[in-house]
Structures are given as structure tokens and as C-alpha cells.
């Protein structure tokens, strides 16, 4: 039921050179002390595609993100970001990846600008380019005036937006967000979802958005339903709904995972 996964090498062998997928995962399995956490995951995300990774808590979403970000990589299968294998070319792969982690990761006592400059330094960006990008990306998330404010003075939704700006500073091809709306009120949550959808549409960044909240899915998104380490459905909202023979994506999620959305 997983989407078809093309082997990029076979495509190259034929002499074509289409743009590589932003993310290409094939045959990915990971187990923790004998218990499979992820089992035979295959997934390709095209440039500019917005993919919602839907799964109940414990489905393996965070593990999948940890493997893609190479926090650890003792696993079976392959992961490539923009055509660069995470294991054999980690530097090229990670340079094309932006991440917003589930837990807040900003230094509360430092300013917005200091936090972002630290991230730019981790990517080895020269100071001037870093400052330009910081201004540009902050503006992009509607936080332009807050450069010199301490992160502690920002609301939860604003902190998340700063984290999104941070993940975009090095102009990644793929943006991962692991349940980014956790702890936000309804309005900030809706704003954030709309905002990132717009970013993906306008900038052509591929987005993998993990959540267990069904209302964060927009009609044009691709949906991947992950449950107990396996992909249960993968396709457009309409296709997944039709395949499950139900009326809505919420009902499809419930039918596939046995859980109320």
C-alpha cells in the first residue's frame, strides 16, 4: 500500500537525470531490543510536496525522524535526502535538511537573533550571509521585529515560528516537523499549519509534517498513515479516503488505525 519507490540509481542508469526526490526512503526497518519499531517503510517525497505523516502516539513517527536526521542509524534500508544517502554522505544530506523537533530547542535566555546565528554557525555560514538569511526568514514567518527579543518573552506559537525560521536559514530542500503544534492553543495551531502550507507552496520546500491531529491535513496534501511501525495508507486525501471506503480523512484514519482521530 506504500507508494511506489523508484530506485534513483536505476533511473540514472537509463541516462535520465530527473531532479532527485527531496526524501527517498526504501525498505526501512528499525527494531529496539528485538521489538520492531519501524517495519519496511518506503516513502518518497517530491520537491515542494506537503506530506502529512499521520499516526497515533507510539506509531514510530519520532523514530522515523531520528533515523532521517541520523541521530542514530543502526537500521536496515536506505534513506536519501535530495539524492544524498544519509549514511554514506551524511554531510551533504544533513546540509539539505531542516528540522523542527517536537521538544522546544531554543535557548530561552538568548535572543532570537543569537539563537538563529548559532544555527547558521553550525552550518558554517559566513556572517553576512547568515544575517541576511536570518532577517529574510524571520520576516517570512512574521517575526521580523523580534530579532533582539529574548526567546523567553515570546509566546509558544511565536517560538515555534522562530524554530521554523531557524530550520529554513540554510535553505534546505526538505523540512521535517515532528508534531510542531504540541502545546499550542487552537488559534496558534491553525495559524502555524496555514503558514507552513504557504511556505511549502511558495518556496518549493518539501515538507514532512508528523502529527496525530487530523484537522492539520489540508485538501491538497499527501497523507501517509503510519501505525505500529507500518505504513497503512499513502496517497492524496481523496485517494486515501476512497480506498478506505469512507467519507472523510478522519474516518479513514479511524478505520486504518482503529483509533478515533
Amino acid at each position: 500500500m506504500a507508494g511506489p519507490v523508484d530506485d534513483p540509481r536505476s533511473v540514472c542508469a537509463e541516462g535520465h537525470r530527473p531532479a532527485p526526490a527531496a526524501l527517498e526512503i526504501a525498505g526501512l526497518s528499525f527494531s529496539y531490543s528485538g521489538r520492531p519499531v519501524l517495519d519496511g517503510i518506503g516513502l518518497a517525497i517530491a520537491r515542494g510536496e506537503f506530506v502529512v505523516l499521520l499516526g497515533p502516539n507510539g506509531a514510530g513517527k519520532t523514530t522515523l525522524f531520528s533515523l532521517v536526521t541520523r541521530l542514530y542509524d543502526r537500521r536496515v534500508g536506505s534513506i536519501a535526502i535530495d539524492g544524498h544517502d544519509v549514511r554514506s554522505e551524511p554531510r551533504a544530506a544533513l546540509a539539505r535538511l531542516g528540522v523542527v523537533f517536537q521538544q522546544p530547542t531554543l535557548d530561552l535566555d538568548l535572543t532570537v537573533g543569537q539563537n538563529l546565528a548559532y544555527h547558521a554557525a553550525l552550518h558554517g555560514m559566513p556572517g553576512r550571509l547568515a544575517n541576511e538569511r536570518i532577517a529574510e526568514k524571520l520576516d517570512r514567518v512574521g517575526m521580523a521585529g523580534r530579532l533582539r527579543d529574548r526567546v523567553r518573552t515570546l509566546s509558544g506559537g511565536q517560538r515555534r515560528r522562530v524554530e521554523i525560521a531557524r530550520a529554513l536559514i540554510h535553505a534546505p530542500r526538505l523540512l521535517l516537523l515532528d508534531e510542531p503544534t504540541v502545546g499550542l492553543d487552537i488559534r496558534s495551531r491553525r495559524d502555524l499549519v496555514t503558514h507552513v502550507h504557504r511556505l511549502a507552496a511558495e518556496d518549493g520546500v518539501a515538507v514532512l509534517w508528523a502529527t496525530h491531529l487530523i484537522d492539520e491535513v489540508h485538501d491538497g496534501d499527501t497523507v501517509v498513515v503510519l501505525d505500529r511501525g507500518r505504513i497503512k495508507a499513502h496517497g492524496s486525501v481523496a485517494a486515501v479516503t476512497a480506498e478506505a471506503r469512507v467519507a472523510s480523512i478522519a474516518a479513514a484514519f479511524e478505520a486504518l488505525t482503529g483509533m478515533a482521530a
Binding site: 541521530l71 554531510r91 544533513l94 528540522v99 523537533f101 517536537q102 522546544p104 530547542t105
Partner: peptide, 19 residues
């Protein structure tokens, strides 16, 4: 690491030993 900012350091493209 519990708060996640060790992860921020470790997703830098530079070699982990160097970081």
C-alpha cells in the same frame, strides 16, 4: 538532549566528533 537542543547540534552537517 531531553530538551532537544543536543539534537540541534547533532543535525549540523559537520562531523559529529568535531561538534
Amino acid at each position: 538532549r531531553e530538551m532537544g537542543s543536543m539534537r540541534v547540534l547533532l543535525v549540523s552537517p559537520l562531523p559529529r566528533g568535531f561538534l
